[in-house]
């Protein structure tokens, strides 16, 4: 986060994409790459939002369907889906989105907290909202998504 912040205190760069009809964004520095629709190997018994595993040049990433995660309905036109790959603490996740938008520069002044009316299921993944021209851009909290994938109950080490 620091890298982006200190660049110009006022401006933030976001990679944007659509899930359903909503526009979302992630800080550019958190995104490793954007790929097409890779072959996903399903993981039986996993929660529905885990689409499965993806082979990213020898590394295994977990594909997370954002529409399922946000408790929206299942996506129908899967063919056009894209993946946004992010990395945290050695874990790779591949966020499956409907389509990719531009990389935008946003003014921090236009940032606002997520309105309370947004459903709780979605709100916990959203840091806040940027008021863009004609559209609202929700900033994804990628850390909570990672947390979602590492339940604390399993946070075990050696005894």
């Amino acid at each position: 986060m620091s890298g982006v912040e200190n660049q110009a205190h006022k401006v933030e760069q976001l990679t944007t994409f659509y899930v359903g009809h909503e526009l979302f964004g992630i800080e550019v520095m958190k995104v490793q790459e954007v790929t097409g629709n890779p072959h996903v190997v399903p993981v039986p018994l996993a929660p529905e939002f885990v689409r499965g595993l993806v082979n990213l040049r020898g590394q295994i990433a977990t594909a997370v369907g954002l529409s399922e995660l946000f408790a929206q309905k299942k996506n129908e036109n899967k063919k056009e889906e894209m993946s946004v790959v992010c990395k945290s603490e050695g874990n790779l996740i591949s966020l499956v989105v409907d389509s990719i938008g531009d990389v935008v520069e946003v003014d921090r002044h236009k940032f606002e907290k997520t309105p309370d009316t947004v459903p709780q299921t979605l709100r916990r993944f959203v840091k806040g909202v940027y008021k863009m021209d004609g559209v609202l851009l929700s900033v994804l909290d990628i850390e909570t998504i990672f947390k979602e994938l590492s339940p604390i109950s399993e946070a075990s080490g050696r005894n």
Binding site: H39, N91, P151, E154
Partner: peptide, 27 residues
């Protein structure tokens, strides 16, 4: 053997994942 993230590990059914010779993933 490649490790799985904790969520999938907590399912208790999988010990990890691997990439087979043809590039496909197998749990």
């Amino acid at each position: 053997v490649k490790p799985l993230n904790r969520l999938l590990k907590s399912l208790q059914v999988y010990a990890g994942a691997t990439i087979l010779g043809d590039g496909s993933i197998s749990l």
